[in-house]
Design a binder for these strands. Structure first.
Length: 257
DNA sequence: TGGGCCATTTCAGCTGCTAA
DNA sequence: TTAGCAGCTGAAATGGCCCA
């Protein structure tokens, strides 16, 4: 059965293994808490062997417990524990995305993190406070409000805090060389991942969109670009390679549309 | 207020790389 | 050698915004 306020199918039993596995996979994904090595096979075994009952339990896992899983050696186990440990202090927007609140993807998470600054402020916000934030409509506001009112959520947040998980208060650059500009990434860049490019754009005041439109200022294309490149050309959107993109960052203030 | 457009999220599927 | 994963694309669904 479906329930609003959740990223996945919610079972009648709140400890439904399938739902827990999806939550854990989303939590550890690169765009969320970036826990490298926390893949489907590992999550399956952690849940099936009752080693984790929620996201907070990940932080209590030992190298020995992980190394005992199928197809896991000591090296992989150490790498995973290190990755879990490093995820304790991620920026607030990524932590919010990791929680898997319905209708809150990376963009909405960034907007909410910038608007409220801290997890505490967000938890205390009323539905009206949330809906007043630009780009957040009543559906997302209601979803976020309900999520933070649930006893299960409060329990999880307390447990994460007890494990030393403290999202960082990050105020993004409101003005920077890319301020007011919208970028779309396509293809593989020679010397950085898309995630790194995305962070670079956001740290410099720009915004990253997932699809090309007339409002897109630049498309950054790497090797083997997808259909976004054709769409950019059709719409007359300027296309940059990595070198020209990095050149744009060094310029003081490029043109805005 | 409704419709159209655009942005964003979700999800399935593909490719190439990595580590056991 | 091979399973699993990261990184990515693109289609569909959904939500927000804008304008007549």
């Amino acid at each position: 059965e479906r329930e609003e306020g959740e990223v996945a199918i919610r079972c009648v039993n709140e400890h439904c293994p399938a739902q827990l596995k999806r939550r854990l996979l989303h939590f550890g994904s690169r765009a969320a808490m970036d826990i490298e090595g926390l893949g489907e096979a590992v999550v399956d075994q952690l849940v099936d062997r009752h080693l984790v009952a929620d996201q907070a339990d990940l932080y209590a896992l030992s190298v020995e417990q992980i190394a005992a899983l199928d197809r896991m050696g000591l090296k992989s186990a150490r790498n995973l524990v290190r990755a879990i440990d490093a995820s304790r202090h991620r920026p607030l927007d990524r932590f919010l995305f990791a929680l898997g609140i319905r209708h809150v993807g990376s963009r909405a998470a960034t907007v909410l993190a910038d608007a409220f600054g801290s997890l505490e402020s967000l938890q205390e916000a009323s539905e009206d406070d949330l809906a007043e934030v630009p780009e957040i409509g009543p559906v997302i506001a209601a979803s976020v409000y309900r999520y933070f009112r649930r006893a299960e959520t409060r329990r999880l947040l307390r447990k994460l805090k007890a494990q030393g998980v403290e999202p960082l208060r990050v105020k993004r650059a409101v003005s920077g060389p890319l301020s007011g500009l919208t970028f779309v990434l396509t293809g593989t860049l020679p010397s950085m991942t898309r995630e790194e490019a995305k962070r670079l754009i956001e740290e410099n005041g720009g915004k990253v969109a997932s699809s090309v439109s007339r409002r897109t200022n630049y498309v950054v294309a790497g090797e083997k670009p997808g259909s976004k490149l054709q769409k950019a050309r059709a719409l007359g959107v300027p296309v940059l390679d990595q070198t020209r993109f990095l050149g744009l960052l060094r310029r003081k203030r490029p043109r805005a549309k």
